[in-house]
C-alpha cells in the first residue's frame, strides 16, 4: 500500500490535507503480530476535497453495520495508522468507548470535525479510527505529541463538543509507547 497524493477536482472544496481511508479486519481465530496487522491493512481511497470525501464515504458500509473485529482509519496522507510510523511514534490517542448502536453518528461527527480543522491544534492530529468489537465500539483520534498537555486537552475538549457524548462516557488517553509495550490498542 503506497500513498499517492491527489488534487481537488475543479470547483471542489479543498481540504487542508490529503487523507486516506484504510480498512483492516482481523482474521478469525489467531493473534496478529505487527507485520500481519500491517498486511491486513488496505488503503481504500484517497481524497483532498470535501466532494472526493463524500464520494468515497457514501459508498462505504455504515459503521453500525460493520461486523467482526474490524477497523476503519482516516489518516493524513503519508502517515500509516501504525504506532511505529514516525509521525505517531511519540504520540498517543484519545479513546472513546461507545455502547453498540451509537458508533455511526459519533464516527461521522469525528471525521467531519477532523476534515474541517475543528481541533485547532496545528499539524498535531494524525488521524482517526473506528474499531468495531464484540461488545462495544471504540473511536479514537491520534495526535503526534503525547507529552503536549495543552494539545491533548484541546483535542479532548473539542472531541466532547463535536461528539455530543452521552453523560458518563469514558474517555481515556493512551500513548502509543504504552500500546507498543502491552501490544494492545485499548
Amino acid at each position: 500500500c503506497t500513498f499517492e497524493d491527489v488534487e481537488p477536482g475543479a470547483g471542489e472544496h479543498p481540504l487542508q490535507y490529503t487523507y486516506c481511508f484504510w480498512y483492516s479486519k482481523k482474521p478469525p481465530g489467531r493473534n496478529q503480530d505487527a507485520s500481519s496487522f500491517e498486511k491486513n491493512m488496505k488503503i481504500i481511497g484517497t481524497f483532498r476535497s470535501v466532494e472526493q470525501f463524500w464520494r468515497i464515504y457514501s459508498h462505504m458500509i455504515r459503521a453500525n453495520d460493520l461486523t467482526g473485529h474490524s477497523d476503519v482509519h482516516v489518516f493524513k496522507g503519508g502517515i500509516k495508522p501504525l504506532w511505529e510510523d514516525k509521525a505517531n511514534r511519540l504520540g498517543g490517542k484519545w479513546i472513546v468507548r461507545l455502547r453498540k448502536g451509537l458508533v455511526a453518528r459519533c464516527w461521522e461527527n469525528l471525521i467531519l470535525a477532523m476534515l474541517g480543522e475543528q481541533f485547532m491544534v496545528g499539524d498535531e492530529v494524525c488521524g482517526a479510527v473506528v474499531s468495531i468489537r464484540f461488545q462495544e465500539d471504540i473511536i479514537s483520534i491520534w495526535n503526534r505529541s503525547a507529552n503536549e498537555s495543552q494539545v491533548t486537552s484541546r483535542i479532548r475538549d473539542t472531541l466532547c463538543r463535536v461528539l455530543n457524548l452521552p453523560p458518563n462516557t469514558v474517555m481515556e488517553y493512551k500513548t502509543h509507547n504504552e500500546s507498543l509495550k502491552d501490544r494492545s490498542s485499548f
Binding site: P14, E51, W54, L112, G116, E117, Q118
Partner: peptide, 21 residues
C-alpha cells in the same frame, strides 16, 4: 498560515452537491 476550516453543517450541505455523488 491560513487553515481551511469547515463546520459540520457546511460539510453536510456539500454532500448533496452533484459533484459529491
Amino acid at each position: 498560515g491560513t487553515r481551511i476550516i469547515y463546520d459540520r453543517s457546511f460539510l453536510l450541505k456539500c454532500r448533496s452537491s452533484p459533484m459529491a455523488n
